[in-house]
Nucleic acid binder design. Structure first.
Length: 371
DNA sequence: AATATTTGACCAAC
DNA sequence: GTTGGTCAAATATT
């Protein structure tokens, strides 16, 4: 269950980064617009200044706390942290994150580091070099599309397996592109329903479609995509989940190396959704050895090219203001299908992936959270 | 008949 | 030995 833990930690890491960013934004607002946050007119200038300073200090403390937690999580993820982060000027020491062969071990190191390489072992049959991407879909209570609508995308998929996953209440469905035989399309996806919040589905994409996008048959596939997720005992109550209005988030390992969290439409309650996967943020703040059982999802991966038609129409490789961009792409060998589809991802070394950590931090600026 | 889904078995990776 | 991913025969659907 290492992968489960790893995914959970990454989600929590994102959470902490987002919190830190939010505190930073508050601090910025406080600095730029000090009077806005003053509850009432100060009785004196001294009191007013003291309040301002106290508030600023509080926000700073919160920021530091968030970043501290982030570092803690990063360490758990085997991310290599510079020995003394407080003295390390990352503006000059460009840091990189690696997803090394261990599918979910994110490593941050200097470009000269050989760490990620040294851990790389020749891929075996079931390891894939395909890009991985995960989409988190939350099924809401409104809308007219139906559950299958929430889970479908512009590609047609054929189910080829279903598996009970250890520690997960719901089985995992395995799909491959319908055009695998005719066009050699190697794209696959897995759909996993959340234990904690059954209205949340994690769709894990692997590999990119080499088939024509328009060739899909939406109707025939969409139902099947959902059904496998429903455990046998629930099939008798197909409306257990109300008609959906979905919220979707990408947590992905994308070709540009930025971890992407992509909301659909309105600001999604990221914290809530993340918690659905991470089982409250306190889990990772402790060193509780029993934390293994807190998540039932497998690692994040998926394909950026499989963004759904009901998504914000943005290039999956270029996060815009509409979504948080932090995607990390990983490459693994896949001899499995005998298909070496043209992968648009070419600039990553075999076995791991690098991206400037600075880019990772950039997404904060446009994060749609507003307190 | 063609295509899709289900599901137990198989197998590679730990 | 256990687990996750895939295969493939049986079955269901169109």
């Amino acid at each position: 269950m290492e992968e489960v833990k790893g995914f959970d930690r990454r989600v929590h890491l994102i959470n902490e980064l987002l919190q830190g960013m939010e505190f930073a934004k508050q601090l910025r607002n406080q600095i730029l617009n000090p009077t806005n946050n003053s509850c009432s007119s100060p009785s004196s200038n001294d009191d007013y200044n003291n309040d301002q300073v106290a508030l600023n200090n509080l926000l700073l403390e919160k920021m530091l706390s968030s970043f501290d937690k982030t570092i803690t999580i990063a360490k758990k993820l085997n991310i290599q942290i510079p020995q003394d982060p407080s003295t390390n000027n990352h503006n000059h020491n460009h840091s990189y994150a690696h997803f090394s062969e261990s599918p979910h071990s994110l490593t941050i190191s200097s470009p000269n580091s050989e760490t990620s390489r040294s851990n790389f072992s020749p891929s075996k049959k079931r390891k894939s070099m395909m890009p991985k991407w995960t989409k988190i879909v939350q099924i809401g209570n409104e809308g007219v599309k139906g559950l299958e609508g929430a889970l479908e995308d512009e590609y047609s998929w054929r189910k080829y397996g279903q598996k009970e996953i250890l520690g997960a209440r719901f089985p995992r469905g395995y799909y491959r592109c319908t055009h695998r035989r005719t066009k050699g399309c190697a794209a696959k996806k897995q759909v996993q329903r959340s234990d904690e919040d059954p209205s949340i589905y994690q769709i894990m994409y692997r590999g990119e479609h080499t088939c024509a996008k328009g060739a899909h048959l939406v109707q025939a596939q969409s139902k099947a995509q959902f059904q496998p997720i429903v455990p046998a005992q629930l099939k008798s109550e197909p409306q257990q989940i109300p008609s959906p209005n979905q919220n979707e988030i990408y947590v992905g390992l994308g070709p540009e190396g930025d971890l992407k969290v992509e909301p659909e439409q309105e600001p999604v309650n990221y914290a809530q959704i993340f918690r659905s996967f991470s089982f409250t943020s306190t889990h990772l703040q402790t060193d509780d050895p029993n934390e293994n059982d807190m998540l039932s999802f497998c690692p994040a991966f998926g394909s950026p090219t499989t963004s759904e038609s009901n998504y914000i129409p943005v290039s999956p490789y270029r996060p815009t203001d509409a979504h948080i961009g932090l995607t990390v792409q990983t490459s693994e060998t896949d001899n499995n299908e005998g298909v070496s589809g043209p992968n648009s991802v070419t600039n990553s070394p075999v076995g791991d992936f690098e991206f400037p950590i600075d880019d990772l931090l950039d997404f904060n600026c446009d994060f749609p959270f507003e307190l």
